[in-house]
Design a protein around this nucleic acid. Structure first.
Lengths: 208, 208
DNA sequence: GGGCGTATCAGCCAAAAGGCTGAGAGACCA
DNA sequence: TGGTCTCTCAGCCTTTTGGCTGATACGCCC
């Protein structure tokens, strides 16, 4: 049996090497490459066609993890992408799943959990950390409060402090549409102002 | 030589007991009481007159750490108050020093650092964690960017998502004064909108 | 005593944000 | 085919926010 080939994507060297050492203990898993950015990841994935891509969402500069996942999925639909990140933000989960992620792991997950997720991913099974699963369940119970992918995307820019005009320019939509999305986001978050939305998003959603 | 008497104030039991165990290894330091809230701390300090009060800033409900420090200082000026908290927020540092704190430690500080701070405090010396010192130095180099205590206080409420009217009611000042403070805060943070100020404060100031 | 920093407040105006209603296009599903 | 969801956009109106100028008061320091 050939080992499962893995590509690691994370902008921190320490995380990559730590993860590589961890996965190195498993005979059926082999890290064949590492990438420090979304751009690099696309090149590496193209050349090596790993079975699984383990991807951080927050990448310092350039393409973020979500965008990288989307492009990977377009490039090669057989690769399974596992999100491996620090925060269990509702909005990030929604966006990652929407982009085509196979699983969602937190960085404080137990090693066994990570191994299981990688093995499951190649067999088409989705695996996620317990806190992530818990959030998803909660969302399923209250579907009215689930942000749509577009809303989540907008929220992630909102907490950067952008104005409606800037949001529109960044997302290539009109200011009117921005306001519509914002109204929906406010309703779902249970707030009335953008300031409160930012505060809530950062606290409850763990965004930053 | 009598040991240095210490009062621990933190709303988390685990933090208190961890700290107590740590300080218990030092023969010249004795934890004489613990408090889970600012209100409790005032009572305990009054009754026992500890030499040093080690205080967390973020207390779940009721009086926050800053307010507790202010009242402690009014109650008994001989007690030295050490701030022991998770975040090295500029605004918190300014407010704590203004309230009369003798030192400012982060929760990830080395044990030796904590012992040294307690021993220093009873001798009238100020001790702070390296990241805190670094922030203060930076502030001294750019005095134009240092928030005044009142501005810091306002900022800490701003990031809760309050409107100008609510800020005014909470601080017992007019909306006009709120706007004046906000304009100064924006200038010091280098932003132009409250949304950006909240975003910046949470990222750069480590507030939440 | 005069300057400096801080905190307080007012009024005016322009820009931004928010509340509301309505509506069209595309995807998906029963 | 019809219903639902999502994303898109427009107009209208009110409220909020931000920029500006100017002013008073208090404490501190040289």
């Amino acid at each position: 049996m050939n080992p499962i080939t893995v590509l690691l994507v994370d902008d921190h060297l320490v995380v990559r090497s730590g993860l590589k050492a961890l996965l190195g203990t498993q005979p059926d898993i082999e890290v064949v490459a590492e990438a420090a950015s979304g751009e690099e990841a696309l090149v590496q994935a193209e050349q090596l066609s790993p079975a699984v891509v383990v991807m951080d969402l927050a990448m310092g500069a350039g393409m973020d993890g979500i965008e990288a996942i989307k492009r990977l999925r377009r490039q090669n639909s057989r690769q399974a992408v596992l999100v491996f990140t620090t925060y269990d933000s509702d909005a990030d989960i929604v966006r990652a799943v929407d982009a085509g992620a196979m699983g969602y792991l937190l960085k404080d997950a137990a090693p066994e959990e990570i191994f299981a997720a990688i093995r499951g991913a190649v067999q088409g099974r989705s695996v996620m950390s317990a806190p992530v699963a818990s959030r998803l369940f909660q969302q399923l119970r209250n579907p009215d409060e689930v942000l749509t992918p577009r809303e989540a995307e907008l929220l992630s820019l909102l907490i950067e402090g952008l104005s409606n005009r800037e949001l529109g320019q960044r997302l290539f939509i009109s200011e009117a549409t921005v306001k519509t999305h914002l109204a929906h986001i406010y309703a779902k978050l249970g707030v009335e102002t953008r300031a409160a939305a930012i505060a809530t998003a950062i606290r409850r959603e763990g965004m930053r």
